Amino acid sequence: MPELTITRVFDAPRELVYAAWTEPDRLASWLGPQGFAAAAVTLDPRPGGRWRACIRSPEGEELWMSGAYRETSAPERLVFTFAWDDPGVETLVTVTFADLGGKTEMTFTQTGFPTAAERDDHQAGWNSSFADLTGFIRGEDDR
Score class of each variant (00 low, 15 high):
residue 38 A to E: 07
residue 82 F to W: 05
residue 52 R to F: 11
residue 82 F to K: 07
residue 25 D to A: 06
residue 55 I to L: 08
residue 29 S to E: 06
residue 64 W to N: 01
residue 39 A to G: 11
residue 36 F to C: 06
residue 67 G to I: 15
residue 56 R to M: 11
residue 83 A to N: 05
residue 39 A to S: 12
residue 71 E to G: 01
residue 53 A to V: 08
residue 52 R to D: 01
residue 72 T to R: 14
residue 27 L to P: 00
residue 50 R to T: 06
residue 47 P to R: 11
residue 51 W to M: 09
residue 80 F to R: 03
residue 50 R to C: 06
residue 62 E to S: 13
residue 52 R to P: 00
residue 67 G to M: 09
residue 69 Y to G: 00
residue 41 V to F: 12
residue 42 T to M: 10
residue 59 E to A: 09
residue 34 Q to R: 13
residue 34 Q to W: 12
residue 64 W to C: 02
residue 67 G to K: 10
residue 34 Q to T: 08
residue 62 E to Q: 06
residue 25 D to G: 03
residue 76 E to N: 03
residue 75 P to Q: 01
residue 46 R to E: 04
residue 41 V to S: 06
residue 72 T to C: 12
residue 82 F to C: 06
residue 38 A to T: 10
residue 68 A to I: 15
residue 71 E to H: 08
residue 71 E to I: 10
residue 30 W to H: 12
residue 77 R to V: 01
residue 47 P to V: 02
residue 81 T to R: 03
residue 76 E to D: 02
residue 54 C to P: 11
residue 30 W to C: 09
residue 82 F to G: 01
residue 47 P to L: 03
residue 61 E to V: 15
residue 51 W to Y: 14
residue 62 E to H: 13
residue 65 M to Y: 10
residue 33 P to M: 09
residue 37 A to H: 12
residue 68 A to R: 09
residue 76 E to Y: 08
residue 67 G to T: 03
residue 63 L to H: 05
residue 74 A to N: 02
residue 78 L to Y: 02
residue 31 L to A: 08
residue 64 W to E: 00
residue 40 A to W: 11
residue 74 A to K: 02
residue 45 P to M: 10
residue 59 E to C: 07
residue 81 T to V: 08
residue 48 G to Y: 09
residue 29 S to F: 15
residue 69 Y to H: 04
residue 66 S to W: 15
residue 52 R to S: 07
residue 29 S to R: 09
residue 42 T to S: 13
